[in-house]
Each structure stands twice: as C-alpha cells, then as structure tokens.
C-alpha cells in the first residue's frame, strides 16, 4: 500500500499537486494513503528543497513541479 506524501507549506500549488496526485492514484485503482507534510523540518528530512513535492514510500518523485494527472499516474504506476 503506497504512502503518497505531498510536501509543501500549503500554498495553492501544493493543493493542486495533492488534488492531481489523488486523481492519478484513484485512476490507477491504487490502495493508497495520501498525506500532507507541511512542517518545514519534516519537508527537509525528506530531502525536498523545492515545493510542491510528491514523495512516494520515502522516495522523492516530484520536486517543484506540478505534473499532469497522466504524468503522475505514470510515476505511481510502479508502486503497489
């Protein structure tokens, strides 16, 4: 069960990424958990420097970008 974390202090870009990641995971029919990481030390601990970022099971997949739902689905499709 993949854990998808969206890192960012909570600006509109982070919300957009969270929505798209959610839609992408749903479109794949994944059994997943979506979490938001908003605390700065927590974001840094994941090695993320530019937000918004998507971390899946501890691996940074997206940094400082908002990919399309399809691109996010491609990123998520390897996880189960």
């Amino acid at each position: 069960m993949p854990v998808i974390e969206i890192c960012g202090p909570g600006c509109s870009r982070c919300k957009t990424l969270a929505e798209r990641a959610d839609a992408a995971a749903k479109s794949l029919g994944l059994d997943y958990t979506l979490l938001k990481v908003t605390e700065m030390p927590q974001i840094m601990a994941r090695g993320v420097m530019s937000t918004p970022a998507m971390v899946v099971d501890g691996v940074v997949k997206v940094q400082g970008q908002i990919p399309s739902i399809e691109a996010l689905a491609a990123l998520l499709s390897g996880t189960n």
Partner: peptide, 23 residues
C-alpha cells in the same frame, strides 16, 4: 478499497522516516 486521508483537512505531521532512504 481506498484508504485515503482527507487532503483538504488540517495538516498531518508525520514522524521522521527511520528506515534508510531508498534514494
């Protein structure tokens, strides 16, 4: 089954990762 935490709700703080990062 989708086990999803509502993303629009309050921020959730997650404990630091302890396992080695699969970087």
């Amino acid at each position: 089954m989708t086990n999803e935490t509502d993303s629009s709700e309050s921020a959730i703080t997650i404990p630091l990762l302890t396992e080695p990062r699969r970087c």
